[in-house]
Nucleic acid binder design. Sequence first.
RNA 1: GGGCCUGUAGCUCAAUGGUUAGAGCAGGGCGCUCAUAACGCCUUGGUUGGGGGUUCGAGUCCCUCCGGGCCUACCA
Length: 572
Amino acid sequence: MARILITSAIPYINGIKHLGNLVGSQLPADLYARYNRMRGHEVMFICATDEHGTPAELAAAKAGKPVAEYCAEMHGIQAEIARGFRLSFDHFGRSSSERNHRLTQHMARKLGENGLIAEVVEKQVFSVADNRFLPDRYIEGTCPNCGYEKARGDQCENCTKQLDPTDLINPRSAVSGSTELEVRETKHLYLRQRTLKEKLGEWIDSKTDWPVLTTSIAKKWLNDGEGLQDRGITRDLSWGVPAQFEGAPWTGMEGKVFYVWFDAPIEYIAGTAEWADANGLDDTAWERWWRTDKGADDVTYVQFMGKDNVPFHTLSFPATIIGSEEPWKLVDYIKSFNYLNYDGGQFSTSQGRGVFMDQALSILPADYWRWWLLSHAPENSDSEFTWENFQASVNKDLADVLGNFVSRVTKFCRSKFGEVIPEGGQTDERAATLVEELETRVRAYEGHMEAMEIRKAAGELRAIWVAGNEYLQSAAPWAVFKDDPERAAAMVRLGLNLVRLYAVLSEPFIPDASARMLAAMGTEDRTWPGAIAEALAALPAGHAFETPEVLFRKIADEEREDWQGRFAGVRT
RNA sequence: GGGCCUGUAGCUCAAUGGUUAGAGCAGGGCGCUCAUAACGCCUUGGUUGGGGGUUCGAGUCCCUCCGGGCCUACCA
């Protein structure tokens, strides 16, 4: 039994995430966690909300609420939606937790003691009306290059020219529109990543099995231009982890907080501590997942994230861990994803374009989305959601191939033998052929799941479902029944056992349907199949079952057209 | 501007430099009737974005052009 630590990139607090966010981190992480639990491994699966930073403060202000209250509320909403999608976190924490405050400050202090923090005085734009320093992109003005009037301080989206906020003509605050802007001096702490460049480079080079997407982004940041740069890890904000605390080896940081990207990954650790707290366990319970001096030596740590998160997980966070010179567990494998696009364009939170997690669940149950998203996960390149494709995949794969298989087996048995696994008869060579095929396919499925080849795993699982229909078609128990009911009984017994086997194999993808299939078969036996022949004998003759309601309903053309129109425009 | 990824059948995607480029869906034909008009079998369909090169051999490696995407360090 292995011990596997899994973290999903933590979703930002300001609003409900769309399906692209879901499929880029939380959903594949959940798939992997569920699979490993099914295989009997000890799994710790942690996620949280990422609650600090300028956008959170602005979103709270817009909602007319204190930021702490706003975040608490949004955390509750996101947690509820995560449950709706059956995301099986062992704990869904908060980066604003007391645990994360303490651990973030601890890390900063260690880094300071190890000479890895520099104090830097720099100039930043301050908005008097907003009473806050503005990040570059929150300053708008006319582009000096192309004349576009809504250019941002970091870059003009019209001509793509890189800008400095002071380049802008008629600069104004993107928050309030105020033009009362001043350049002020402010002191910040910098993490001296340059010092760690060599160690980080060696570490990345040792990860030869990581996805190209992951290592190429890391290497680019490490080696491009002047190489890895030191990075500011504090901000002039009020909501966050205070950068000044008892024993901190620096002064003059009053009223400043750590940068959200400094404290967010630390929340993976703090979130595990929150898990221990929530379950009444002491520190040793979470430290055995994270401290290699306290039992985490045999842990395999896998992170899931969208490609935009990669630099922070390959460089900044490891710099924090390595720089602390404490025995924290470093990540073993990073699975990164490209983006999911929506019907020819991008999902857009600001424009309300695309399907958001709450809307998705209001239309169809979680399994429908889980299946489509996972079987189309953007592993190698950006992929695209279209309603036609969604409808076709769900109807064919879930309703016709799997759902109808369960339906035809159970209903045939009910009408000929009653709702009990029938006895008697022998299976023939067709059954042997099926067992042989499943043996190969199940092992291939396991291989893909272990390698986190999600689309390939989905394809293999589907082929396993199809094999059941092929068997029934060639065995034709409905014809055999007419003059040899016992032989038909053996075929049906096999078919009903296939339903149980499919429930077990499919659990990571479609947990609700899996549970319904097991319930219908009247069993709680979720044993992962070793030898297929044995697994197909789990339900003995005489065992009672129930004929389930339709497992997956089909999506009608009119529904699809309705949804297509509903999610094209601006969210109301 | 720079870096990386990407372009394969109508659609979504596969193919350690090695037979005749494969699947699923859609399309066509046949079969079956247990089942959610479902299932099974057979089948049409490709100058692998264009051009050049390396190689006994290129979807794959190199150059170039065209198209799409991401990142580019103060959004997260």
